[in-house]
Computed example of a mutant assay.
Amino acid sequence: MSDISVAVIVGSLRRDSINRKVAQAVTRLNAPGLAFTFVEIGDLPLYNADFEAAPPPAVASFRQQIATAQAFLFVSPEYNRSVPGVLKNAIDIASKPNGHNGWGNKPGGLFGATPGAIGTAVMQSHLRTVMGGVGVTVFSGPEIYLTVKDDFFTENGDFNEGTHRFLQGWMDGYAAFVKKMVG
């Protein structure tokens, strides 16, 4: 059996985004049987039903990547106590047109990181609600609220030892969940 394709979606467009760095480090953790591919959302236009007759190339490409992925991993910051607009826009784009929801009936995982003390708790709550609306079953393992401090990453961009151990435990559970759902 070939590896399960997991689309990784980062909810920040910033080049030096903490969440992009976290997503890159997470995908380097041990996850046998999973193949991670970053799916970019920065070139997507704002969703508009008027373009359904002839979707722009960026929309068609994104929808194809989401439709062919077998699972998802969302790593996102929290903007104004919710999901970043760019991430919500991407979710809306791949859920349309009606009857062509690329997200549906697939497993997903989500978390985020911030320099702030409460992590991305509110964003995660909102994103879980949105994922339920588009048919993604979210891994119910431990919720991850990462607070990034100076020693969070090593010099080569991996996690410090304690964070690595903690996130490897999460990844082990997520990988088992994805494998069970995909079958």
Rank of each mutant, 00 (worst) to 15 (best):
I4S: 05
N30P: 00
V86G: 01
N101P: 10
I4G: 05
A69N: 09
V10M: 12
A60K: 07
G99N: 01
F51S: 12
D43N: 14
Y47I: 06
S2C: 01
N98T: 14
V83Y: 11
A94L: 09
L44P: 00
G108Q: 10
S82Q: 10
F62C: 13
A71W: 08
S12T: 13
F51C: 10
R20Y: 12
L29C: 07
V39K: 03
G102S: 08
A94N: 11
G108M: 12
D43R: 06
A71F: 13
N19K: 09
Q70T: 06
L34R: 02
L110C: 01
N105W: 13
S12H: 13
P107R: 09
L34V: 02
Q65M: 04
D50K: 03
N48I: 01
E78K: 03
F74W: 12
I41H: 03
L44C: 04
V86A: 04
P56T: 04
N80D: 11
A113Q: 11
A69R: 01
D50G: 14
I41M: 04
T27G: 04
K96R: 15
S61F: 00
I66Y: 03
G102N: 04
G33C: 08
L44I: 06
A23R: 12
L13W: 03
Y47P: 05
S61G: 08
A23P: 04
A69S: 15
P55Q: 02
V26D: 05
G112N: 08
V10Y: 14
A25V: 11
N98D: 14
S82V: 04
N80K: 05
V86D: 04
G99C: 04
S2V: 10
G99F: 12
R15D: 14
G102K: 03
H100F: 14
E40G: 11
L44E: 01
R63P: 05
G33T: 12
